[in-house]
Amino acid sequence: MAASSDGMALVAADLVKTYSQGRGTPPLRALDGLTFQTEEGTVFGLLGPNGAGKSTTVKILSTLARPDSGTAMVAGIDVGRHPGRARSAIGFVAQKQVSDPMDTGVENLVLAGQLHGMSTRAARSRAGELLERFALTSAARRQVKTYSGGMARKLDVAIGLMHRPQVLFLDEPTTGLDPEARAEMWAEIERMSREERMTVLLTTHYLEEADRLASRLAIVDAGRVVTEGTPEQLKSELRGDAVVIELHEASVISRVLESLGRLGGFRDAAAEGRAVRARADDGGAALPLLLAALDAEGIAVASATVSRPSLDDVYLAHTGHSFAAVHAGSSADARTELEEVAS
């Protein structure tokens, strides 16, 4: 197959998508020149808060929505020009449940295979294989409406894998799952990317999920990719360790910042609530000096931590706001959305 002659399994080039919001309100610019590309066989993560444009990107690459402008390619196929061919090459696991609750697990899988042109016999054998792999064999003949959230999500992924797609879209595969089910799903996705030579586009708003699963990732903010690379690359761009000093009262923050400046060796110092964050090349050595200096000034410290840079730091450095802060606002929406779907 002429799959990705340039070696790219996924290409999003300058995607723009606006949604009209009714009269009087300006259209919502969901994508604002979003651009990235992925090599074959990688798990590529799109990381960003809700509303950043991740789902819209997935909808365009999977032929569901059309961009206002820009090009989207999947497995070397231009999805705007040949949506039919693109559909044969992809598997799609939406943010919402993609299985039919009235059908059993095996019926869902076989139907998905049949719709992809598999013979009923081939679909049955593939369904059996996937049910076993996802530890759903004992529930295979039960209606999906009796499944737990974690089981239903695993079935969704299995449905996406039925026809052995070249590219699999996983739109927030673990949102709404309890920690145990999430860990299980992570293990499955890791195994999947190892065993089947397949490109996975994973969207998530969990930093740890992107860090653990994605071999490359792009951070998306307000419809644009703000930075891209392997998680390690992105973290090493931020030289040095993160040092966080938590204080009992915010009033002494300016004095702490002054001390940091006098000491030297600290960069990017910034206040956040009652805490001060900074970077240091060797955080372990710099911290005792800082604590001693603060002690000499009579400033009481509640806690002090040194850590290797996290994706949260990367996010903060590139967007100017902490991921946790954005996410705290949006996760409540995500939950109500999920509850609406469930009810």
Partner: peptide
């Protein structure tokens, strides 16, 4: 019902 779930979107992104 299919739209409220992801079933409709899955069909539309497949060669159905």
């Amino acid at each position: 019902q299919d739209m409220d779930r992801g079933v409709m979107d899955r069909f539309l992104t497949s060669p159905t």
